[in-house]
Design a protein around this nucleic acid. Sequence first.
DNA 1: GCCAACGTTGGC
DNA 2: GCCAACGTTGGC
Length: 135
Amino acid sequence: MNYWLVKSEPSTYPWDQLVKEKEGMWDGVRNYAARNNLMAMKKGDQVLFYHSNEGKEVVGLAEVSKEHYPDPTAKEGDWVVVNVVPVEKFPKTVTLAQIKGDSRLKEMALVKLSRLSVSPVRREEFDIIVGLAHD
DNA sequence: GCCAACGTTGGC
DNA sequence: GCCAACGTTGGC
């Protein structure tokens, strides 16, 4: 079981849309590091859903429902998508400011590699964030 | 809206 | 293959 964090701009694909659709295809990734992470995702992996730009907070938990397959929106190149399903909307969102202010979370890729849209999360980090979300 | 970080492109 | 220029992302 692995843990991930994906970023989406609420104006493009907010959490509520994933809930409405029941299952979302995570398309449009055009970055090699992010793609490699998508390809490493396994069915059942837990995925933190982060709103970038507006909100700047982790809003919910999703789960990989289908492992990587070719991105139908890619006209050229070897890009992939995964499918995710919503698991839980967090009772309390976890803001970027909270994450930056927590010494245990300072090493997160979210903080260190702020432009990476799909990043791995360590088990400990995942547990801490889920804990904060239910505080 | 600005700017820093960083990935990508293209000239040499 | 190096590196400058440029584009994009995302925090502020």
